[in-house]
Design a protein around this nucleic acid. Structure first.
Lengths: 197, 197
DNA sequence: GAAAAAAAATGAACTAGTTTAAGACTTTTA
DNA sequence: TAAAAGTCTTAAACTAGTTCATTTTTTTTC
């Protein structure tokens, strides 16, 4: 993808919540870093300090941790038009416990911590953009953390399919199990049961 | 509690992230509504549209939903210096699925949706305040929704006790079970096991 | 396009957490 | 302050989800 196109994507995303002048758009874009990651390579690993927050313009990545037993727990699948990273590490500058690995060749736009801080000084309107972005994310995380605790694994799978019908086809059953919070074996059973219904 | 004191609490809370002039403080306070709720009464019920977001200056409330079987799922215990409400309903003006019930006589400061919108026009700095507030909440919800899925009930209980040692003593075991996501019977077993260790 | 590696399916034995029920203890209300 | 209502404990039978082991199918790599 040429960068014109990927800049257009991020400007459209920002444009949903705030209006920018041409000058502000140029300034904003000058603060971004273009990043490409090949399939099966890491954008970030546990132990790293998160240097960037990313906007995905192309591809698919998984964000996950490993528990003490080495079992993966997937916290999100990041696809086009999504923001990703480890915000806790990005803000505190402490080492992350997350891995971010590309499932497909992917293209991202990153903002460094220094530029993120600068952005608010240069274009204070971005406080509003992030206020609304975080507010919306918060609403969906609150819903997810309640659902996670009150629905059965089968219900969570049906919910995921309903909410992200395209993403289901881009990820393996094993990764979906890691997201839903069950073993791949049980995921397999659920899927064959749901398909039979 | 006199209102001087409760205003001081909310101004201190806001003051952690932004600096306000005396004039801005007065303006802000003029947008707030004082609310008292007696123990065992509701601040809000499922079906209501959330008219306010609340800051708690005194007391303890539980925020919960009921699932199809009528079983309660508690999403938070709100105590002094916390913010609460149903942000989804507050923003979209759609009916809430949450109940908020006082566990102790409580005092709150509410901001209505109209005043919340006005606040950003009058004191744009508040975009920054809420950007930071939501960002921090998001970080802790992301952590919680991952923990919820990867820890056992016993581990979640130990984690809760470590993180909110004071709150544990203000709520019943039954409510704690509703928060942890297990039955009161199993909560009872976990507590007697953990105390024996 | 063959070989190697990874993912998916299936089944049997197991465990964390639920359900139901009943009695003891504590708090609330009149 | 007695009665009622709610909370906590314990235990036995149950179910959703795990673990481990094996085979089949799909994807990746050279």
């Amino acid at each position: 993808m040429n960068f014109e196109t990927s800049y257009q994507l991020i400007l459209d995303n920002v444009g949903r919540f705030i209006d920018l002048t041409e000058l502000e758009k140029q300034k904003y874009i000058s603060l971004l870093t273009e990043v490409k990651v090949k399939r099966k390579t890491f954008l970030m690993q546990a132990g790293d300090i998160a240097q960037y927050e990313y906007f995905i313009t192309k591809g698919c990545l998984k964000v996950y941790t490993l528990d003490e037993d080495g079992a993966p727990h997937i916290s999100m699948f990041a696809v086009e038009d999504y923001w990703t990273g480890d915000m806790a590490s990005f803000m505190t500058k402490e080492p992350s416990r997350y891995f971010i690995k590309a499932k497909e060749d992917s293209e991202l736009l990153g903002i460094s911590r220094a530029n993120y801080d600068l952005l608010f000084q240069e274009i204070p309107k971005f406080e509003r953009f992030y206020r609304i972005l975080y507010q919306k994310s918060l609403i969906s995380y609150i819903r997810r953390s309640n659902h996670g605790i009150s629905l059965t694994a089968e219900e969570r799978y049906i919910e995921f399919k309903r909410k992200y019908p395209k993403t289901v086809n881009r990820i393996t059953q094993k990764d979906l199990a890691g997201y839903i919070g069950i073993t791949p074996e049980f995921m397999s059973k659920i899927i064959s049961k749901v398909n039979r219904m």
